[in-house]
C-alpha cells in the first residue's frame, strides 16, 4: 500500500478537527480569544497592572495545556508528568541568568531543547508501557526531575531562585508588562496554529490513529512507537517554552512547579476545556485560573468548592467546556 493510499484511508477514518470548530464552537472560540486579548488591555489602560499579569499567567499556562493536549487529547498519552517540562524550561532561564548569560536567544531555545531532550529520554522508556503504567511512569520521571532540581543548592535548591532581571530579547523589553503579555499571546497563537497543523498533517493522523486503534496502525505498517515518541518530544519542547515564559513572568523559579499536583492541574485544565479540541485547553486554563482566583478571594478554604467542581465536571461534563457548549448549541 502506498503512503498516499494509507493517508486516504486515514482521512476517512479520522475527521479532521477544524481550527475554529463548527457553529457555536467557532463563535465561542473567536470571542474568547478576543476577550483574552482585549480585557487585559482595558485593565492595563485603566491603570491596573495586576489583571494584565493575571492574563499573562493564563496565556503562559495555556501554552503548557495546549502542548499537553497534543499528546493527551489527540495522542491518548496520559502524561502525569508534564509539570517537569515546565520546570525544566524555567531552569533553562534561571541557570544561565545566574551565571550572567541573560540573552533570551539563549534562554528560549535552550528551554525547548532541554525539555525536548528530557522528553526524548523519558518518552523512550515510558512509551514502552500502556495505560495506567504510562500515567505512573511519567509521574515517576517528573518526581525524579523534581528531586534533582531540589538538590541543586547552587541554584537555590528548596528556596528557589529569584530572577533578578528578565531574559533579554534585545529590541524587546519584556520587563514591561504589556510587552510581555503581547509576546506570550503571540507565542500562544503560534503554538495553537502549530498544533492545528500537526494534528491535521499525515503525521498527526497517525498519532491520532494510534490513540483510536494502535493495532490497526501497526498493521498498516506504521512504526507507532516512533510516531508517538516524536509527538511526545514536540509536546515536551512546547511545554519547555511555556516554562521559560513562566519563569520570566514570575521572576522566580522553584522546583515546586514540578510536583505531581502541578501535573494534575495541567491535566485538569485540558480536560475541563475538552481534550482533543484545539482550543479546549485555553478555555480550560482560563476557567481554572479564574475559579482559583475568585474562590480564593472569598475563602481560604477554596479547595473545598474547587474539589467539588472537579468531581462534578468529571461526572457530568463530558468533553469539557467545549463539549458542553457544543451540546447546548445543538439542543
Amino acid at each position: 500500500m502506498s503512503a498516499q493510499k494509507k493517508a486516504a484511508n486515514l482521512d476517512e477514518y479520522l475527521k479532521a478537527p477544524s481550527l475554529f470548530g463548527f457553529g457555536i464552537g467557532r463563535i465561542m472560540t473567536i470571542v474568547l480569544m478576543v476577550l483574552l486579548f482585549i480585557l487585559p488591555l482595558i485593565a492595563w489602560y485603566m491603570g491596573n497592572k495586576f489583571y494584565l499579569d493575571f492574563s499573562s499567567r493564563i496565556v503562559c499556562l495555556a501554552i503548557a495545556a495546549v502542548s499537553l493536549n497534543l499528546i493527551l487529547g489527540f495522542g491518548g498519552m496520559v502524561s502525569f508528568g508534564h509539570a517537569a517540562f515546565v520546570g525544566i524550561g524555567a531552569y533553562a532561564v534561571g541557570i544561565p541568568s545566574h551565571h550572567g548569560y541573560e540573552s533570551a536567544w539563549l534562554h528560549f531555545p535552550l528551554a525547548m531543547i532541554a525539555a525536548a531532550f528530557f522528553a526524548l529520554v523519558t518518552g523512550a522508556i515510558s512509551l514502552r508501557t500502556k495505560g495506567v503504567y504510562f500515567i505512573m511512569i511519567t509521574m515517576a520521571f517528573a518526581q525524579m526531575a523534581y528531586y534533582f532540581f531540589l538538590s541543586l543548592e547552587e541554584y537555590g535548591g528548596d528556596d528557589g531562585m529569584t530572577l533578578w532581571s528578565r531574559s533579554d530579547f534585545g529590541f524587546l523589553n519584556i520587563t514591561d508588562k504589556l510587552t510581555f503579555f503581547l509576546l506570550s499571546y503571540a507565542l500562544l497563537a503560534l503554538c495553537i496554529y502549530l498544533v492545528f497543523r500537526i494534528v491535521n498533517s499525515r503525521f498527526g493522523m497517525v498519532v491520532r490513529g494510534c490513540n483510536s486503534n494502535e493495532a490497526r496502525m501497526k498493521s498498516l505498517g506504521y512504526n507507532t512507537y516512533a510516531y508517538r515518541l516524536t509527538a511526545y518530544v514536540i509536546s515536551g519542547a512546547m511545554c519547555g517554552l511555556a516554562g521559560a515564559l513562566m519563569a520570566n513572568l514570575q521572576d522566580f523559579i522553584t522546583a515546586d512547579t514540578m510536583t505531581w499536583t502541578r501535573s494534575g492541574e495541567l491535566m485538569f485544565m485540558v480536560i475541563l476545556g475538552g481534550a482533543g479540541s484545539v482550543f479546549g485547553p485555553i478555555f480550560g486554563t482560563g476557567v481554572f485560573l479564574l475559579f482559583e482566583e475568585i474562590l480564593s478571594a472569598y475563602t481560604i478554604y477554596w479547595h473545598l468548592p474547587f474539589g467539588v467542581l472537579l468531581i462534578l465536571s468529571v461526572l457530568f461534563i463530558k468533553g469539557g467546556v467545549n463539549g458542553l457548549i457544543q451540546r447546548a448549541w445543538k439542543t
Partner: peptide, 30 residues
C-alpha cells in the same frame, strides 16, 4: 462517587479522586 466512575477512563478517575483529596484535606482542617 466511585460507583459512577467505573465506566469512565483512568484519566477521569485520576481527576475525580484528585478532587476528593482537596475536599478531604479541607474538611479535615475544618
Amino acid at each position: 462517587i466511585v460507583r459512577h466512575l467505573y465506566e469512565s477512563n483512568h484519566l477521569d478517575h485520576v481527576l475525580a479522586t484528585f478532587g476528593i483529596i482537596l475536599i478531604a484535606d479541607t474538611l479535615v482542617q475544618l
